[in-house]
């Protein structure tokens, strides 16, 4: 399979193959032959030698797998700068993991985008990814397509602790009353839990957000999750919360303390 896909690549990649066969260690010449520019080759070597990753027997095969995936040299450089651990992953494992991402529904295009934005996803054994996928389907009742969308939009979920993931989901689903489709649309899993809670609670205390009742009804029209989570703080404040930066800053400090004390189950006894 590997051989076949290489056949389809351009001549640059043919040379690559030759170099791979010749030696395992990275050299400037080899990198230039792969299509890197002088500067890129230097950067790559520097990166690779920083923690000895370049000496890894897998370094060249890693590069090759990334080329085979269709990434260009500058993207490959970025990927490895972001995630030098990949130098040390066995080529066959990388292929396995990429194939698994395809099986999870990531199509060409999305697949490359995910890998270039979040190469860390390839450091995880494919079994782990499948566990997360199963968890999202079974525990959170996302559809197969929604699970794919989550991996595409928020690949970092792969690394999340499942307990925390569940907490975040339940917060959105029960506490905020948001359905799965909206959770996916809002790219909720990209946002840290504290930020979700802060933005939500702030709106709630200002009287601008209500948890729907059992029939899914509210007395006010809630803003769309999409409009207040996936936007910069300034937009959130001026367009949704209609509040000042100072107010929100104090609110965040207060929330942090409230949650801390809630967790500790602490009682405070202040005289009034």
């Amino acid at each position: 399979r590997l051989y076949c896909s290489i056949q389809n690549q351009t001549s640059t990649q043919h040379t690559t193959q030759q170099h791979l066969q010749m030696g395992r260690e990275l050299s400037v010449q080899a990198l230039l032959d792969m299509g890197f520019t002088d500067t890129q080759a230097d950067q790559m070597l520097e990166r690779a030698n920083k923690d000895g990753a370049g000496q890894s027997e897998h370094a060249t095969s890693t590069l090759m797998v990334l080329f085979v995936l269709g990434l260009n040299p500058s993207t490959v450089l970025k990927v490895l700068e972001k995630c030098p651990e990949l130098f040390c992953v066995k080529g066959t494992h990388l292929e396995q993991r990429i194939d698994n991402l395809r099986r999870l529904g990531l199509l060409e295009g999305s697949l490359q985008r995910v890998v270039s934005h979040y190469p860390q996803i390839l450091t995880l054994p494919y079994k782990r990814l499948n566990t997360v996928a199963r968890f999202l389907k079974e525990k959170c009742a996302f559809t197969v397509q929604q699970v794919t969308d989550i991996f595409r939009d928020s690949p970092a979920v792969a690394h999340c602790d499942l307990g925390q993931l569940e907490y975040k989901f339940q917060y959105a689903y029960f506490r905020m009353g948001v359905k799965q489709s909206e959770i996916v649309k809002s790219k909720l899993f990209r946002v840290p839990l504290d930020e979700i809670r802060c933005r939500h609670c702030f709106l709630e205390r200002r009287g601008l957000y209500q948890t729907p009742d059992k029939k899914g009804q509210t007395l006010i029209v809630n803003p769309q999750l999409n409009d207040f989570l996936a936007v910069p703080e300034e937009t959130y404040l001026t367009e949704v919360a209609i509040a000042t930066q100072e107010e929100f800053e104090v609110f965040q400090k207060l929330m942090e303390r409230e949650w801390l004390e809630q967790d500790d189950g602490q009682e405070r006894g202040m005289e009034s």
Binding site: R205, G207, E247
Partner: peptide, 14 residues
């Protein structure tokens, strides 16, 4: 009027 959300949130905080 428009001051209410801010007052409301404040009264619901410490």
């Amino acid at each position: 009027e428009e001051a209410w959300p801010s007052v409301r949130a404040s009264m619901l905080c410490e």
